[in-house]
Design a protein around this nucleic acid. Structure first.
Length: 383
DNA sequence: AAACCGGGGAA
DNA sequence: TTCCCAGGTTT
């Protein structure tokens, strides 16, 4: 398919370049498969600069397979707070528990065993096996597909699974004997530092001389990628409910269900808006009060608009209006009654688990960033 | 094959 | 604004 010379030029020059230009990243200072694994999971759909501080805190808090395997899940979610894709954290702990129990704490070394672990797909298994164990397995991520599609002028849509298969076969053929660990990292490093999505730095590229994409003047047009659909908008009204009496200075928060969007994360009570537009603040607050009473048996007295904000997922965008509110005394029998007395979770009739918390308690609960922003705004206004 | 699953940095 | 990032799972 592709000439041996072109392939050999690529592998040798890339390796030589990597030896001189690789960044000093925290997870490159060790070959501990557990640390490599953590870094690879964190790096899924997340930039290096974002991951670095999380990685440091995470390995400090959970330095060994056993430490993570035996930690409470809430603590792991809290350590992941702000990174997004929280199923990554829950899957990682679940998989680490399996390694702890079934493999005596040693990350397995075969493709089949590693791939069977929760949250470990083709990319991550290849990355762990190659980087930590130097096994000649491909690790094809977005960087690698971009680099290969340009260098070998591959015009297939990289969103198609079949294209990924082609890339994996090619990437495997490019690994020279005994160089898998460095080569796979070099490939990603080139994609991150030189062969960037826009304005690639071809003049400093170690493999420019035989790059088919550049020869064809196609480097900016590659890789070919079908456009994703825009996220659908959803309006949501949020209630920032202040406690009174013994709950003065606290807010009412709730934990989301075990599965689905933001599983097990904590949040401020909010309701989906049936209509696709807002009314006046007075009408919105009336509707919010009515919906909370209906859906959650929470009866509030709204006390005015607080802020507007947005939360963007890959497939949804929450357009949120936040209203301050107090609980009405008459509503003493709601789901928050005795909320701090370890209300049972997992009841099918009771999707949310409520609690009163003050600013000093926030360290015990993992929130999606949008709610962190709202609560921080609230604290700043109170000062 | 398409949908679901967060959040932010860069241009 | 748009893109897309060291992806995986479910339908």
């Amino acid at each position: 398919m592709y000439s041996t010379e072109q392939k050999l030029h690529f592998s040798t020059n890339l390796l030589e370049w990597y030896g001189r230009h690789k960044r000093d990243l925290p997870w490159r200072r060790s070959k501990n498969p557990y640390y490599i694994w953590i870094s690879e999971v964190m790096l899924q759909q997340t930039r290096v600069d974002t991951v670095i501080p999380y990685f440091h805190r995470f390995v400090e808090q959970f330095p060994t397979v056993e430490a993570l395997a035996t930690a409470p899940e809430e603590q792991v979610l809290k350590a992941w707070e702000g990174l997004g894709y929280y199923s990554r954290a829950r899957n990682l702990q679940s998989a680490v528990r399996e390694v702890h129990e079934r493999y005596d704490g040693i990350v397995p070394q075969t493709k089949e065993e590693v791939s069977s672990l929760k949250g470990v797909g083709p990319y991550t298994s290849g990355a762990i096996l190659s980087i930590a164990y130097n096994k000649p397995e491909p690790a094809v991520d977005g960087n690698v597909m971009r680099v290969l599609s340009r260098y070998f002028l591959i015009e297939e849509d990289i969103m198609k699974p079949s294209t990924r298969t082609v890339m994996e076969k090619l990437a495997r053929e490019l690994i020279l004997e005994g160089t898998a660990s460095d080569f796979n990292q070099a490939l990603m490093e080139l994609g991150a530092m030189v062969c960037t999505p826009r304005s690639p730095h071809c003049l400093t590229c170690p493999v420019m001389a035989h790059c088919s994409g550049r020869e064809a003047g196609m480097e900016e047009a590659l890789p070919i990628k079908k456009k994703a659909k825009p996220p659908r908008p959803e309006l949501r009204a949020v209630a920032l409910i202040e406690g009174t009496g013994e709950n003065a200075g606290k807010w009412l928060i709730r934990q989301r269900p075990q599965e689905g969007l933001l599983a097990k994360m904590w949040e401020l009570p909010h309701v989906a808006w049936a209509s696709d537009s807002w009314q006046s603040d007075e009408e919105n607050q009336d509707e919010l009060r009515s919906l909370l009473a209906e859906q959650e048996q929470i009866v509030i007295q709204p006390e005015g608009w607080f802020m507007d904000t947005e939360h963007i997922f890959s497939h949804i965008v929450w357009k949120m209006k936040v209203y301050r509110a107090k609980l009405l005394p008459a509503s003493g029998q709601g789901p928050w009654a005795g909320a701090n007395a370890s209300f049972p979770t997992g009841d099918s009739w009771m999707p949310f688990h409520y609690r009163w918390v003050g600013p000093e308690d926030l360290g015990d609960y993992a929130f999606p960033n949008v709610f962190v922003r709202i609560m921080r705004e609230w604290q700043e206004q109170g000062e």
